[in-house]
Computed example of a mutant assay.
Amino acid sequence: MSRSTRLFEIVQLLRAADRPLTARRIAALLEVSLRTVYRDIAALQAMRVPVDGQAGVGYLLRPGFEVPPLNLSPEEVEAIMVGLALLGRTGDSALQRAAVGAGAKIAAAVSRDAGSEAAVPALYASGWNALPRAPTDLAVLRDAIREARKLGVVYTDAAGRRSERTVRPLALLFYIESVVLAAWCELRSDFRHFRADRILACCGLEERFLREAPALRRRWQDCQPT
């Protein structure tokens, strides 16, 4: 992630937060060191971005600060709205709620920038051909991926064999027929893919793998067929 992208992401995180964000939390979300966060916060403050707070307490963005518009093309807006609508298939209620909110923000931004006549595709979160319902909340999986937190899972394979595993979650894959968790499995000492509808139970563990996560994710991506 480039420095300019990282500065933008920090501003976005602070804008979305309803309470001060600690440097440690920002570092975890962006997968960078605390020292990097402190330098980036200082850089933003030097650019007169209204970031208040201090190390060890937390940071917040004073109200009224706006970032420049994204200037999306009509096709880019439509691509985003189609992608948001397809979330209706996943059964992930938290993502569906977020999709509706994101769609409304995009529509408002486009209308504000292009005038009231701007056409934004309506967001219909259809459940047509819905994916198999997962016994566990997909938000738990997404949170663990975002926080680089190990998961304890109870899994049953296609033959009905049940196992308990500790995994390092790396990505969620949304296929036509299922949602799949890509992870490093400590039982097998290798990458494994777990269908979400076969994860009978899971819980976030205290242990995290922040430092290993980027390298693990790159290795997993290198193993994927092109």
Rank of each mutant, 00 (worst) to 15 (best):
E147Y: 14
E31T: 11
F191C: 00
L14C: 10
I41L: 04
L34D: 06
P68C: 04
P68A: 03
E147Q: 15
E31L: 11
A108C: 05
Y124N: 15
V51G: 01
R168A: 04
P63H: 06
L181A: 05
A196H: 00
L14V: 12
R97Q: 14
S189M: 11
V77K: 03
G127I: 11
G88N: 07
E117F: 07
R89C: 13
S178K: 12
L138E: 06
G152E: 14
A79M: 14
V110H: 04
L70Q: 07
V100F: 10
F174W: 15
V180N: 08
Q54E: 09
G88R: 04
S111R: 02
Q96V: 06
L13K: 06
L70Y: 05
E207H: 05
A107L: 05
L30D: 03
S116V: 00
P50E: 09
V67L: 09
Y124K: 15
K150F: 07
A43S: 13
R192I: 07
E117D: 10
L34A: 08
A158F: 15
W128V: 14
A118G: 00
A23P: 06
Y175W: 14
A43C: 13
G53H: 03
V32E: 05
S93F: 09
L87R: 02
W184D: 02
E147L: 15
G88W: 05
Q45C: 11
A183F: 07
C203P: 01
A107W: 01
Y124C: 15
A134W: 03
T136R: 08
Y38E: 12
L181K: 04
D197M: 00
I199C: 01
Y38L: 13
V51E: 04
L216F: 01
A159H: 14
Y175F: 12
C223F: 10
C202T: 00
V140M: 09
A85M: 11
R161W: 14
A102Y: 05
V37C: 00
M47V: 12
L216G: 00
A183G: 10
L170C: 06
R188T: 10
L170T: 03
S4Y: 11
R3L: 13
R195W: 02
M1N: 09
A102G: 08
D40N: 08
L34V: 10
L86N: 14
R198T: 02
L87K: 00
A98Q: 13
L131M: 09
I145Q: 04
A85N: 10
D197T: 03
I26E: 03
R211N: 11
G56S: 02
R219M: 10
A201F: 01
R219W: 08
L131N: 03
V67W: 07
A79P: 08
A183M: 10
A159M: 13
G103E: 06
T226V: 14
P63Q: 07
D137E: 14
E117P: 03
A16C: 12
P121D: 02
R142P: 07
G58Q: 05
